[in-house]
């Protein structure tokens, strides 16, 4: 499942940030970090591609969001596989 790293630039108006932050936090598949200077919010989305696209579009649509920058895209396999050889070998050792 792809992992996207984002920086969400929140609006300059601090009054609009709190509800926006709350709304973003409630979105599925997203994890948020600590905002830098209250305005630059690091976040990750782990979801399939259409869900990720939709999630980014939703964030962009919030009035309290100025910009969304994609800073990282990790292309992992669709899901961790319990019987993948890596895990097998580790548990064996």
């Amino acid at each position: 499942m792809p992992t996207s790293g984002l920086v969400i630039t929140l609006a300059e108006d601090s009054a609009r940030r709190a509800p926006t932050l709350l709304a973003i936090e409630r979105l599925p598949d997203i994890a948020i970090g600590q905002p830098v200077d209250g305005r630059y919010l690091p976040a990750t989305i782990q979801a399939d591609q259409p869900t990720t696209t939709k999630c980014i579009q939703t964030i962009e649509s919030y009035a309290g969001v100025d910009h969304v920058a994609i800073t990282w895209i990790g292309l992992d396999e669709p899901a961790p596989r319990p019987h993948a050889p890596s895990t097998q070998l580790e548990s064996a050792s």
Partner: peptide, 13 residues
């Protein structure tokens, strides 16, 4: 992957 992505995003932020 999530940790790496978050670290990159935080650095960029």
């Amino acid at each position: 992957m999530a940790r790496t992505a978050m670290a990159a995003a935080a650095a960029a932020a």
